[in-house]
């Protein structure tokens, strides 16, 4: 289990838990990001934050600080991309 903010672009996995006490997580759950859902980190913004996620056919962006409390089981068949080089 790993925090969503640790996933590299291209990686995906199943949601294990969210911090249900926060309004932002309630918003995400309303959008369908529930435990069991597969979520993929599509990319990071050019300046490193926020991150773009895709799940259930939609794409949203979320700040790193808000992705930290969302925990993911990285899928077994998930590619392990090399971390991008610093510009």
């Amino acid at each position: 289990m790993v925090s969503l903010s640790k996933l590299l672009p291209g990686q995906f996995g199943k949601v294990v838990s969210l911090n249900a006490e926060r309004a932002v997580d309630q918003r995400l759950m309303a959008l369908g990001l529930l435990p069991g859902m597969v979520v993929k980190v599509v990319r990071r913004a050019p300046l490193g934050d926020p991150i773009a996620l895709s799940f259930g056919g939609i794409e949203i962006c979320l700040r790193d600080i808000e992705a930290r409390d969302i925990f993911i089981d990285i899928a077994a068949d998930c590619p392990v991309p090399r971390p991008r080089k610093k510009l």
């Binding site: 918003r27 959008l31 939609i58 962006c61």
Partner: peptide, 8 residues
């Protein structure tokens, strides 16, 4: 503040 959850 409202959460910054922005749909693309």
């Amino acid at each position: 503040p409202a959460p910054f959850v922005l749909e693309l």
